[in-house]
Write a protein that binds this DNA or RNA. Structure first.
Length: 313
DNA sequence: AAACAAGTCAACCGCGAAAAC
DNA sequence: AGTTTTCGCGGTTGACTTGTT
């Protein structure tokens, strides 16, 4: 036996709203408010509509100060950053964008922004590639890049999205996607067979700057305490399900120390995106069940990982 | 010009949470 | 304290529009 329907579907009108219905609903709510009862409202307002339908119509279309039309670059950036952090929590994201509705943002993400993001990810150079020594302005370096983008990126170019289920780097043998929004930001070149070897062995050899936000347990400690240097940084306390409180404390301690380390390292690279990354770190709630992983590597095999991104989408 | 494909977005659905009883 | 009702959310649908062949 299923749930009782909220209204008699046979007697209510469905489909697009007519201007007359809109006016009736608007007039009623402006005069009486919603009365805290959407189910009873349509009858009182003289509408042959389901209460849920009225609520949706009001919230998404009729209520005052709704903003329609193009999303700005700032709005794009807010949506992308929040999505990377909290996933498809549209109502929360909408809360940060006055005048926008969760439905609008969800549609915008699904139909446009996701693709826009992907295209910009494929077109822009890897911003974590260390600029040549004679270039001390990273913005300049990007502008002189041989692969300029015809797309405008809604994100700082540091953020590239891919499926968290793809093999992650060797540091992450205890890294899991449990409870993780299915988007994380990754750029890495580690092979699946390298997983489980531990972080330092792999990355020191490559002599590439790698900054990783994410990981847990041994990996995190190893990266943070034993041999961090300019080649490898880690910041996170993610993936800490099923471990002892004591271990959690260790990890949390490690990650709070890393924040400063990461900031210092980012400062060294003189990149235009540094402030955005710092912002991302500071706004990310790294709890046991939520995390942000962020892998960056200057290795030239980045392109193949981006093709995986394409497959995912 | 017609047929088809792809994109868009308003609206619907069903579920879990919260509130009311 | 347990049950029922309502709300709010995220995923999905499908009618309509736009683009392509």
């Amino acid at each position: 036996m299923g749930r009782a329907p909220c209204c008699d579907k046979a007697s209510v009108k469905r489909g697009p709203w007519s201007p007359e219905e809109d006016q009736k609903l608007k007039d009623y709510i402006e005069k009486h408010g919603t009365g805290g009862n959407w189910i009873a409202l349509p009858q009182k307002a003289g509408l042959r509509r389901c209460g849920k339908s009225c609520r949706l119509r009001w919230l998404n279309y009729l209520r005052p100060n709704i903003k329609h039309g193009e999303f700005s670059d700032d709005e794009d950036r807010i949506i992308c950053t929040l999505f990377a952090n909290i996933g498809s929590r549209w109502s929360i994201i909408a809360g940060q964008l006055p005048g926008r509705t969760d439905n609008d943002i969800k549609n915008y993400w699904n139909t446009k922004l996701k693709k826009k993001l992907l295209m910009s990810s494929l077109m822009l150079p890897n911003p974590f590639v260390r600029p040549p020594n004679n270039i001390n302005n990273y913005q300049q370096y990007l502008l002189s890049s041989p692969s300029p983008s015809s797309y405008s990126s809604p994100l700082p170019p540091t953020l590239r999205l891919c499926d968290n289920n793809y093999p992650t780097l060797g540091a992450s043998r205890s890294f899991t996607s449990e409870g993780f929004s299915n988007i994380s930001t990754n750029l890495f070149n580690i092979q699946p067979q390298d997983q489980g070897l531990g972080p330092m062995q792999n990355y020191q050899e490559k002599e590439s700057p790698l900054i990783m936000f994410g990981g847990a347990g041994d990996d995190q400690q190893a990266a943070s305490s034993s041999s961090y240097d300019e080649h490898f940084m880690m910041f996170s306390n993610c993936g800490m399900n099923n471990i002892s409180d004591q271990q959690k404390q260790v990890n949390l301690g490690v990650s709070s120390g890393d924040h400063e380390i990461v900031s210092n390292v980012l400062d060294q690279y003189n990149m235009s995106c540094v402030e955005e990354i710092k912002q991302l770190i500071s706004t990310t709630n790294l709890s046991c069940n939520s995390n942000l992983s962020f892998f960056v590597d200057e290795n030239k095999t980045v392109r193949s990982e981006e093709e995986k991104v394409l497959m995912y989408y």
